[in-house]
Design a protein around this nucleic acid. Sequence first.
DNA 1: GTCCCTTTGAAGACG
DNA 2: CGTCTTCAAAGGGAC
Length: 366
Amino acid sequence: MDFYDELIELEKAMIHGSDPLQVMIEALLKEAEEPLTVPAVECGFHEPDPVTDIVKMLQGEIIDQPPVKEKKRGHHEQDPLPTTALEQLVGDEAEQVPINNEWCDPYGPDPLQDIVKVLLGETVHPLPVPQCESQPLSSPRPSPTGPAESFVDLQSQACTTHLCSQQDLHPQAYTAHLCSQQDLQPQSCTAHLCSQQDQEQNSNVHPVMFPHIMLENLIPVTTVNGEMVYPFPLETFTPAFLPTTPLLNIPTTQRGKTSRQQHDKEQPYIKKPPNAFMLFRQEQRSNVTAELNVKNCALVNTELGKRWRRLTEQKKLKYFIEADRLRHHHEQMYPEWSTSDNYGKKRKRVRRKCLTPMTILLDPTA
DNA sequence: GTCCCTTTGAAGACG
DNA sequence: CGTCTTCAAAGGGAC
């Protein structure tokens, strides 16, 4: 099931009153039966989760910047790191945008919204406490006061596989909630619970939210209460947003036999991660194609560009966040890669100006 | 078979 | 530092 199929299924579910979360879970389980395109051990999950950093920024915390990556040919390194567009955007939104149901997602509930609500102390889906059949944590921590109080007691339910569905809560939000109580990174926290669950329930069933994870293939990052804590791949957070084509690929223009390819044969072609607009385009292209009833990509992209510019900064935010996450993921997977590595691997071409009567009038030689 | 078109954003190159 | 160039996607059309 590809990205667009998932969207269609989710929309159908919402139209027919089904639980979208359950649909997502079923899709993930189905996806788990298919072979992985990216091995879990290569997913760069030892780094802090960028979503967590974004939430911290929303709260006004100072984020520890990762070490500056030494670029191969770059000469613009500065210390400290310059503020990125995303950071500026998030910073602005944090001051101006109230947290409400429509926040930053024009197409439906956003998991990040739940995370922000949790950390800002708002109540998220205050559903009845699920009845947990399993054992409490071996060394339970006292429940902190503040934001997490709107949630059910962690100790009574931390080891079940169905917490998220029972609470009608997105996995991200639930993970953030647990992490706020356990002082862990989301990846570590959730995988920790997975390992606990395996031990306590003596079950081989991994949580429905992480069908890709095989703990025996992971490297523990730390220990909590004497137990190994495992990371898990970033990609399991929002699989629907992953590129539809693998990052490691041969582009269309590289598929013929050329001398350049012979030279590049030893160096696998690593594609650039998509930017925010590319994610938006990927999501909306089929809609626009259907609406305009054209398949001409140039026309479709022109329309997508117009729609992108009409989007509010709030609605663009989720695309910037996802692009930032994918870029971060890409950096972990290919730390030595630079955008300039791909320079010249597509045919160099002269960018032509759009010939309109005005441009011709201004520059007849164009 | 290969390249162009068309869009935005990120990042490197360059003066 | 500001500007320019390249590349991410994608599929019809031109050559």
